[in-house]
Design a protein around this nucleic acid. Structure first.
Length: 550
DNA sequence: GGGGTGCCCTGTAAGGATAC
DNA sequence: GTATCCTTACAGGGCACCCC
């Protein structure tokens, strides 16, 4: 380092030998710390250069310390890493930082070295790496930055995971004394690596790293996270061993490099006849396809049972069931109406079961809901469709049908029906809707009625058509009735046919038309009401009426 | 036929124990 | 200190069955 080096060491001497003076004169810890940390880094790196300290250990510790400094006084952008050094004696501290980076580069292999720029703005020294230099620095920090509980201690480092290029390689395939397949798998980032053990067990794949050094175990967890697996450090029993483990599904959610390496172990084991071929095929399928687990969502079971769509989450843990029920309530769904809940009892699993109407409502909320409800519902519907798609064919078709129906509620305008061609009784009708609305009314018996009025032109005949819904019978079924008018052009029969054409154009389904005495009755059921609910002018009234008339 | 529920069976996660 | 095994609870797939 020549003359610069001498100056640097002069500052180090000053910082370390006169710490008492610094502490006394400056009377603030942060000033002392500003010098102590880079000075320690400098000494550590110098020792590593002289071969008195393990080089990789020094790189790792440097990375931890520098990341901590950036977490406090730095900035991390997509293509930039910057450390700010300000305050009293900032110039000297910045010089120290530069000296440590210089030594660090001497320790790094060619492909990982990086350059930095230093500038002063508003009295603060800034040490920044840009572009490729920043990318190389990020690789070091990504592996070394302190973390806990599956995340970095500073959110500034979360983005690194996407940028880092953890390499995965395997070797040392062997059979354990009991005949299980084991292999070594090494994950490395930059010049830092960790060796893990992979075991092909009877029912799962297990990747494991164990150590009595908690720091090494945390590094193992960080590198595994860079490979896309969020396993946490755990303490084995109450003893002094720390461990990081991940099994099949977690591994299958990892990055392609990791999945490929593990798949290679499985493939070779299958070729050697060391694992059951059916099990190996299942694992390979998972590893090759990748398993996109939605963060924060459990795995809902989506399937068809004799034509009905079953959407269900089951668990023996009451807290899990309650958590899902709460999530559905937060989404705007109502228990009993949109979903059913059965709490676990006697060791048996409980469940939340999404009723058909619930999935429809969630689909509606995913389009028409507001704020958090809309976001939650959209995420939920996506998740269910994704699960249905995995099952393929009929399951996906059915799920899509329910979701589409839900999304359609209130999505159309009556005036959208213009010159629609429909066939009733083999005859073609041309329907144009001019307007309409819906309102409640109380019938003579106190029954809550819903009156839907539509103005339309059918085959050139303009008219106002009214249909009145009520709930009838022991099932309390929704039923809508209208009577054809005798004074309409062509008389009752022609009016009934035009009415039927209008309802078919609006709902997609023909009503039932029958004669009672000399009257012509046009009758609609729940499916027609669902069809009417697709129109914004009618949707709110229909939803409210369905609620109050229950 | 579709909606909803119960239950069996298999695969996986989690945690501890044990062998080397 | 590390590698391997064991146990158990839980999750999830899928089918049978009931009800309307």
């Amino acid at each position: 380092m020549g003359r610069v080096g001498e100056e640097v060491w002069g500052i180090v001497d000053f910082a370390l030998n006169d710490m008492y003076c610094l502490a006394r004169d400056c009377a603030r810890d942060e000033v002392a710390r500003k010098f102590v940390e880079p000075a320690l880094e400098l000494m550590m790196l110098d020792k590593a250069l002289e071969g008195k300290l393990d080089r990789r250990e020094a790189l790792l510790r440097f990375g931890e310390m520098y990341a901590t400094a950036i977490a406090g006084d730095g900035y991390v952008g997509p293509r930039e890493v910057e450390l700010a050094v300000g305050g009293e004696l900032g110039g000297g501290a910045a010089l120290l930082r530069l000296a440590t980076l210089h030594l660090l580069n001497e320790l790094l292999p060619d492909g990982l070295r990086f350059g930095v720029h230093t500038y002063v703005k508003e009295g603060i020294y800034r040490i920044a790496a840009y572009g490729g230099d920043a990318a190389r620095l990020m690789r070091l920090l990504a592996a070394a930055a302190p973390s806990a509980g599956g995340g970095y201690l500073s959110p500034k480092f979360e983005g690194f995971v996407g940028e880092a290029r953890a390499e995965v390689r395997f070797g040392g395939m062997r059979l354990t004394p009991k005949g299980r397949v084991a292999a070594d798998l090494t994950i490395s980032e930059g010049d830092i690596d960790v060796k893990y053990n992979v075991y092909l067990r009877e029912h799962d794949i297990l990747l494991q790293f164990a150590s009595t050094d908690r720091g090494r175990a945390e590094l193992a967890a960080r590198l595994l996270k860079l490979a896309g697996v969020g396993a946490e450090v755990e303490r084995v029993g109450g003893g002094g061993v720390w461990r990081v483990r991940a099994t099949t599904d977690m591994l299958a959610a990892g990055r392609k490099e990791l999945r490929d390496a593990i798949a290679e172990v499985v493939r070779r084991a299958a070729e050697g006849g060391w694992v059951n071929s059916e099990t190996a095929d299942r694992w390979l399928e998972k590893l090759e396809k990748g398993r996109a687990l939605r963060e924060g969502w459990p795995k809902y079971n989506v399937q068809l049972t004799e034509g009905a769509l079953v959407v269900r989450y089951r668990s023996t843990n009451p807290e899990n069931i309650e958590r899902e029920a709460k999530r559905l309530r937060d989404m705007g769904l109502e228990e009993g109406k949109h979903f059913a809940v059965r709490m676990p009892e006697g060791g048996k699993a409980g469940y939340v079961y999404i009723l058909r109407e619930g999935l429809e409502r969630a689909a509606w909320l995913s389009v028409h809901g507001e704020g958090d409800q809309q976001e939650l519902a959209a995420e939920f519907v996506d998740l269910i469709l994704e699960r249905a798609e995995e099952k393929g064919g009929a399951v996906y078709k059915k799920a899509l049908e329910v979701v589409r129906r839900g999304r359609e509620v209130g999505s159309l305008k009556l005036a959208d029906v213009r010159e629609a061609e429909v066939f009733v009784g083999g005859k073609k009708y041309v329907v144009t809707v001019l307007g309409g609305g819906a309102e409640f009314e109380e019938g003579e018996s106190g029954r809550k009625l819903l009156r839907i009025k539509i103005t339309a032109e059918i085959d050139g005949v303009r008219g106002e058509y009214t249909i009145t819904f009520g709930r009838y019978g022991k099932d309390n079924k929704a039923l809508g009735r209208a009577y054809a008018r005798a004074d309409a052009p062509g008389g009752r029969e022609a009016d009934a046919e035009r009415f039927a054409a209008l309802i078919k154009a609006l709902t997609g389904k023909e009503p039932w038309v029958y004669r009672v005495g000399n009257k012509m009755v046009v009758e609609c059921g729940g499916e027609h009401l669902d069809g009417f609910a697709r129109y914004a002018e009618l949707a709110d009234a229909i939803t409210s009426w369905l609620k109050i008339a229950e």
